[in-house]
Design a protein around this nucleic acid. Sequence first.
DNA 1: CCTACCGATCGGTAGG
DNA 2: CCTACCGATCGGTAGG
Lengths: 203, 203
Amino acid sequence: MSDSSSSTPTGDRLKTVASELFAERGYAGTSLAEIAKRLGIRKPSLYNYYGSKDELFMDLLTASVEAWRDASRPALDGPGSHHERLHRHLHSAIGFAVDSPHAMAMCRVAVSQVGSSLSERVEELLLSHRQEYRQRLEAFFIDAVQAREVRPLEISTLVLAWQTFLDGVITRYLFAFGHQSLLLEQLDDLWRLFWRGIAAEIS
Amino acid sequence: MSDSSSSTPTGDRLKTVASELFAERGYAGTSLAEIAKRLGIRKPSLYNYYGSKDELFMDLLTASVEAWRDASRPALDGPGSHHERLHRHLHSAIGFAVDSPHAMAMCRVAVSQVGSSLSERVEELLLSHRQEYRQRLEAFFIDAVQAREVRPLEISTLVLAWQTFLDGVITRYLFAFGHQSLLLEQLDDLWRLFWRGIAAEIS
DNA sequence: CCTACCGATCGGTAGG
DNA sequence: CCTACCGATCGGTAGG
């Protein structure tokens, strides 16, 4: 998909190549030598762009998390019914995973690699974004219940149900090697089942 | 939690310690020296138990996957209504994640680290187990639809909906550092919403 | 952006 | 289960 085109400046290609490798092999499994090799330069030249491997990873992770937020969140606050907004939010989130699989995988890698040397900074970054997202969801579901579109369950239950559903869909998409398209075709079926679970009225 | 008790034979403690480290730090992020250090022996002594790091990882992964299957599957084929069986299956699966977090995390690490040197063997192992699980689920949902407990949707949709739900719950459990208990308390709420989505009758 | 190089650590072996 | 050791590779630096 990404062609590593030589027309792109090295600094930009570095981000692409590095996030591909980090996403595929994790932080520890990715060496600077391999990144340099794919870029067609020598390893020490990387230090013209980044001061350390940690910094490179954290920069890419920060950009990935922010890109996910910016791509997926607007739909939640947009026009239309709560049903429409949450549905668009789902498609935005999955669309981001489709268009930016490496950015999505970076987030996944970060979550699963707490315990390494850079865990504190990673945890701090992820925690703040998760808290922010949770607050948005809480506000959304409070509204949705008030509008009588969603059953008057505990807000924390509704938030958790959504997070579980979205995590499940994204997990299956990222790790469904070779048949991602099958999931995408059935995405709206999954959505209807989810919505049926929380909807005030059965359609 | 695990006390690395010195009463346990080294061979058994090796499995515990190694799967803890692999689960926390991934394959590449775990060194044999660290494993040996935690065991209180020297690195070369590990080779009395395993021929290579690959072999150690694959052995632990195989054991983890099989333990998950053996712990979670019986509930699916047990007595009771399909509703009861699937509900017990959910609790078996989560119970396994609670009791054997490192085994569960080993599976997760394996899935997310395709692309490394041992990817072919990992993929082969996971693929066969996933196919087996999928067939069990298909049979289960065919029965459940026939018994009119579940709506007559496409079987593949029902299977995918369940896989998505279970993946979501397990993902959130594994990565909900510090508030796993919150998820466990709300597990049955999530279950009810899921079942409501696919149930033939709304209770 | 390069060559040359650093100490540390990697998985693994020899030999006991 | 140990000491002693291997070549390869790690992230990173010096100096240009």
